[in-house]
Design a protein around this nucleic acid. Structure first.
Lengths: 148, 148
DNA sequence: TTAAAATGATACCAAATTGGTCTTGTTTTT
DNA sequence: AAAAACAAGACCAATTTGGTATCATTTTAA
């Protein structure tokens, strides 16, 4: 199963809550109650998202977190990147030197392209689309330019 | 990093070798030498691929493995499915009942759609494309119908 | 008929990743 | 000054995964 981590899944749920109350500052505790997730887990997710700039954090009493941008400006790709790092299916697609027989391997470049294509698909899908109950215009525009 | 297992990566390398000699029956040992991978690992990959019908196996002396279909008929999606099972990014996208708050979660359906979109993208890419050194027409046609 | 070559099946171990929790420190408001 | 909330990092446990070894079965060829 081509997969992402559970925390990334949680991240979308958490972000959906924030998207529901634009501008408001919600504490980790509040989000945990809304999502039925454990507080420490939610806190971890929120911190990770804040570190990469997807959400803003406000410290002190009545502090909390809020979206850094409107929900329709936050791409699913950005969320996944925030939680999991660069999007690539194989290590080969990331950095050279990890694969022992890199020079004889004619597949590496193609894996990279596949990853980029998927990333493009996720780039054009936003948090607003995800949060919408059965979002009407959930359209995925993917890679367009032939990768020659 | 949105990822697939190492064995799936190996599978593409292994299949590329088989694609290079259409019709010929290559033993696990031979493929291992060609790919510089360990024999037991290659054997495991080949067996998995054979079980799901991507390649055919021939037992006995001079036996081995060969592609079940022409390389341009074997999709990357089929390879990934053979090695990893159903393509889905989250458990929610697979079977209901795994998520505690499934009924209050408005994201589930959308995750499933994202997974299907990616699967479509991988469906239209074949082993022949992967094996081609710098394949000219590496085009990915993805989900087309708006997911309303 | 027998031996060798090859796959089939299974079990097992070790290591890496991940999910989850806890503790301590810092900031800001009241 | 105290309380509320985030920040940072250490830590542990469990699942998964990669990799290896063992034994059985099939088929060809001498």
């Amino acid at each position: 199963m081509l997969r992402i981590g559970k925390l990334t899944d949680y991240a979308t749920v958490v972000l959906a809550v924030l998207a529901d109350r634009p501008g408001e500052c919600l504490s980790a505790t509040h989000v945990a109650e809304a999502t039925r997730l454990e507080v420490p887990t939610v806190a971890k997710v929120l911190k990770t998202l804040a570190k990469s700039g997807v959400i803003d954090s406000v410290r002190g009493v009545n502090g909390g977190y809020r979206l850094a941008e409107p929900a329709d400006s936050i791409s699913v790709a950005a969320i996944i990147r925030a939680m999991e790092g660069p999007i690539a299916l194989t290590e080969c697609g990331l950095e050279p030197g990890l694969c022992a027989r890199e020079q004889n391997c004619n597949l590496k470049g193609n894996w990279k392209r596949i990853g980029q294509t998927i990333e493009n698909a996720l780039e054009s899908l936003t948090l607003a689309d995800l949060a919408a109950p059965q979002g009407p215009g959930l359209r995925l525009v993917t890679d367009t330019a032939p990768v020659a």
